[in-house]
Design a protein around this nucleic acid. Structure first.
Lengths: 353, 353
DNA sequence: CTGAAAGCGCTTACAG
DNA sequence: CTGAAAGCGCTTACAG
């Protein structure tokens, strides 16, 4: 083990002692393979023309020595992405926690350092925070809902001077790469399930009015109702802000009427769990008297009772796609060549709906 | 905005163009303050003797320019911690997700890059994975349950050659810093609440037998029972593996007997949620006929119904303490001067128990 | 196909 | 109290 060799290595005396591994440099590999450092670099980066024989010799040396390039050095010369800044809403949310841990894993896989900031979901200071992130070294920005839209509204993404990507938006947005599912279709599909199950009074718990994903989900809900000859009514709609707490208030309002709904389409799992919560509290029979659906398929969905039928967003894939685009954009220096990446969703069918 | 100045800056032509901010170096600050780069370095690092007047001049220049030291360069010279490797169990768990996102935030705050690996919770390959992490550049290792104990059992922590810290262990462990709460006391306290609420048949859902945190929690449960003259019985105990699924099985077994328990102490929130789930399914009145408590106080605790009375582990503080010790240990090069950091827990009292 | 040299931005040990 | 110089480990543009 590495620990064995620690005794008294003679090394540069000017430098602080460090684990042996750290001293395994590109030069050591080059010497062993009998080539120059730059040839080793070319091999590790699959660049330049290197003869098959040389390549193999270098690869062998790398393997024998267990060489891994020093990321800090690669970053310093500008060839590796050092740091991606991420902005998320400062609310307690299972979805945010899931996205954060997915992004953390993906960032780690890519050797990218994350700079994480939370901002008020009103979005007033989003641009200021993004600017601060860039100023403190972020080479790219990754936006979680709802900040992409705020920046887009202000036409500010380009001003940041770095590539910007956004996860889970409702639409393509100018000057940034968006990675998303079709929110409208997803909500349409899940609402239709409820209709086909024979429900007639299907209520909706919306997200904040200003968010376009809220709007898209609401459109899907309404379109499904209308397509099946059911009436859309404001009495059947309540607005939350994606927090569990707001879902409690919304569900309470929907369920305390004289003609309560027989199903609720919630705009995320947190608010769906809240609807279940209120239903339990009011002694409503679940799922017979009330069906509830969620959105996101967080871990919460399987753990509440009854388990949530919900729209599955491929969070991990979204994070990976965002990171991949960002890394490429940083490398190429072209932050204007944005994409709109649409991933497919699935409906996770469980007992609640 | 930075974006404005992008046109055709005359700079080193050899280098790839990068955002302007990146060109704001220590030399620029030094020039503006009329001092040398090393004096600026001394100011930013609070090192060396710098006169008050000089310090102020430098600070002013830093502020005016908006200078932020380049982390990659700091790491390259060995003064900043570049990379911490983290190992977590490869199970779906709300607790793990919470810890991961907390660690991600704390790491970001410290400018530390994370390398994240999951391993089978049997732990067979934990040492191999930790070694791989070190080989690929991790300068320190952060362990999530149950890996600290596996490494400790193998006496292997020291062999890694880097500082090791562990979050949420049951005990102090050799050759690593442990950050934990008193699991035994916490479970004792929460069990006592149930007894004081008049419950007589209090069951327990344990974690895996080999984990010492499982053992500590079980001890606390049993001790509380005995202290209050209640009998400890194997019929009242079931073992899970901390997953929701295993909790389902355990709760099913406990509740399907002819004399079912009137309360269940679960060893984590996931398994407590599972107990609630089974209770709902069996039509048991909650909380009147069955009280259930959890452990961890994850977001799940407030979202299930009834909301969980549970032990609150200060996850964020634990992550911060771990990172702080690790950073200091890397810097000082002394990985043997370990600590056992005991944080206080609280009982979050809600309707379930 | 291959290499010598410069340079990324910072901190260190040393000298003044 | 302050600075000049070396060096961290890598990649780049260029020359051969």
């Amino acid at each position: 083990m590495a620990g064995m060799k620690l005794t008294n290595r003679s090394g540069k005396l000017m430098r602080r002692s460090r684990p042996d591994q750290q001293h395994l440099t590109i030069d050591a590999v080059a010497r062993r393979a009998g080539v120059s450092a730059m040839t080793v670099s070319n091999v590790t980066n699959c660049k330049g023309r290197v003869s098959q024989a040389t390549r193999e010799r270098v690869l062998l040396a790398i393997q024998e020595l267990g060489y891994v390039p020093n990321q800090s050095a690669r970053r310093l010369v500008g060839s590796a992405v050092a740091c991606v800044g991420l902005i998320h809403a400062d609310i307690e949310s299972v979805f945010i926690e899931a996205v954060l841990s997915a992004v953390a894993v993906v960032a780690a896989e890519n050797g990218v350092q994350l700079q994480i900031m939370s901002a008020s979901s009103e979005g007033a200071d989003a641009m200021k925070i993004a600017g601060g992130l860039v100023r403190s070294g972020a080479q790219a920005i990754l936006l979680l809902p709802p900040f992409a839209e705020f920046l887009a509204q202000q036409g500010a993404a380009l001003d940041l001077g770095v590539p910007v990507a956004a996860i889970a938006t409702a639409n393509a947005l100018p000057d940034m790469t968006t990675i998303r599912i079709d929110n409208r279709s997803a909500t349409y599909a899940i609402t239709e399930r409820l209709i086909e199950a024979g429900r007639k009074r299907i209520a909706f718990i919306a997200g904040p009015r200003q968010h376009s994903d809220s709007a898209a989900r609401r459109e899907g809900y309404q379109a499904a109702l209308l397509a099946h000859g059911l009436a859309v009514s404001t009495l059947l709609e309540a607005e939350g802000d994606f927090t569990f707490q707001s879902g409690l208030v919304a569900a309470q309002r929907l369920l305390e009427t004289s003609t309560p709904p027989d199903a609720i389409v919630a705009s995320n799992d947190d608010m769906a769990a809240a609807a279940l919560w209120i239903a339990h509290q009011r002694g409503i029979q679940l799922p017979s008297d009330l069906l509830v659906t969620g959105f996101d398929d967080t871990l919460l969905a399987t753990r509440v009772w009854p388990p949530l039928t919900t729209v599955r967003q491929p969070v991990r894939d979204m994070a990976a796609a965002a990171m991949a685009w960002l890394a490429q954009a940083v490398r190429s220096g072209d932050r204007r060549d944005t994409e709109d990446i649409l991933l497919s969703f699935t409906i996770a069918v469980r007992q609640s709906g």
